[in-house]
């Protein structure tokens, strides 16, 4: 088995997941300039929603049949949480100084973790998430974990759906207009409040799908899983150029692959043998963020904010 293709494949899988979550950060930021730090918890709640849906099915239902129901359960849980957060936490703060919604988002993030910890049965420890059984899939140059096939199919599909939605539908165009100039969008007759809700809901739905992928991959969900995943996805969004949906996916992939390669190869660099391995993965991910921000502050696909005449 070749080592490099395998490491790239691992990074790709990680990257697809980061990218899928990052879309939620980037869409909300693109439209209301808010970093929704509770998005990691929206993702986590999607995992619990999917698990709840699975538990509600008759015992012994095949995972193939259960999967659509789990996705639906996760999406419903995440979308409800995100839209409620928008309506009751963020909307009243629209027009307030920027720091107010940011602090609210951080508070909401902690509150959602604690609510799940306190009230979801058994959530004080990690809960087992159903997984497909069977061997890894041999693709010649590398192996894929059977459970990652879901992510490999779902992430590009989500991306394609989102891109066509934004580009070709009336609501998608209204979304672009709102992102570029919210007041003028209103003058065109666009209900920007509704567009904001749609941005939150779409981001939440994608986070829920990522959470199902996460559950399948690691075989468990826990109330803290949104913290690091959310931070990484936020990094991916900034890396790709926050506000740009393609940038979010690209940032995710770059981050995932960089993390995987750093974990595998940094230790071979003379003098850095103790800086490799999984324990350092997060460090390298954030080092990458710092480097990109120094060299290209607007992110890989971001535009300089200078188009207001």
């Amino acid at each position: 088995m070749h080592e490099l293709p395998q490491n790239l494949a691992n990074g790709l899988m990680l990257g697809l997941m980061y990218g899928l979550i990052a879309i939620g950060y980037t869409m909300v930021y693109g439209i209301v300039q808010l970093i929704n730090f509770a998005h990691g918890e929206i993702f986590m709640i999607g995992g619990f929603g999917a698990l709840t849906a699975f538990a509600a099915l008759p015992h012994g239902t095949s995972l193939w049949l259960a999967l659509p129901v789990m996705i639906l359960g996760g999406v419903i849980a995440s979308v409800l949480t995100a839209t409620a957060a928008e309506r009751f936490a963020y909307r009243p703060l629209r027009g307030a100084p920027r720091l107010a919604p940011l602090i609210t988002a951080i508070g909401l993030s902690i509150a959602l973790q604690q609510v799940v910890w306190a009230f979801y049965p058994g959530a004080k420890k990690a809960i087992t998430f159903p997984q497909f059984q069977g061997d890894t899939v041999d693709l010649g140059l590398f192996n894929l974990q059977r459970n990652d096939l879901f992510l490999l199919a779902a992430a590009p599909l989500c991306m394609l759906i989102l891109a066509s939605f934004v580009r070709f539908t009336r609501t998608g165009r209204a979304m672009q207009a709102t992102a570029q100039d919210p007041d003028t969008a209103k003058l065109m007759g666009i209900n920007t409040d509704r567009i904001i809700v749609i941005a939150f809901a779409l981001g939440a739905a994608f986070a829920a799908i990522a959470a199902v992928a996460h559950g399948l991959r690691y075989g468990q969900v826990d109330f803290m899983m949104g913290f690091i995943a959310g931070l990484k996805a936020f990094t991916a969004a900034v890396l790709g150029g926050i506000g740009n949906i393609y940038g979010a996916m690209l940032g995710g992939l770059v981050l995932g692959i960089a993390e995987s390669l750093a974990t595998a190869y940094i230790q071979n660099v003379p003098g850095m043998h103790q800086l490799g391995g999984g324990a350092w993965a997060n460090v390298w991910a954030f080092v990458l963020l710092i480097v990109v921000l120094l060299v290209r502050p607007q992110g890989l696909l971001g535009e300089r904010v200078a188009d207001r005449a």
């Binding site: 672009q176 207009a177 003028t184 535009e303 207001r308």
Partner: peptide, 18 residues
């Protein structure tokens, strides 16, 4: 306040959004 990253045609069409 035109929409800078949209084409001229897209800008005009947004004027007819409703």
């Amino acid at each position: 306040h035109i929409f800078p990253r949209m084409t001229i045609e897209e800008n005009l069409l947004l004027g007819a959004f409703l």
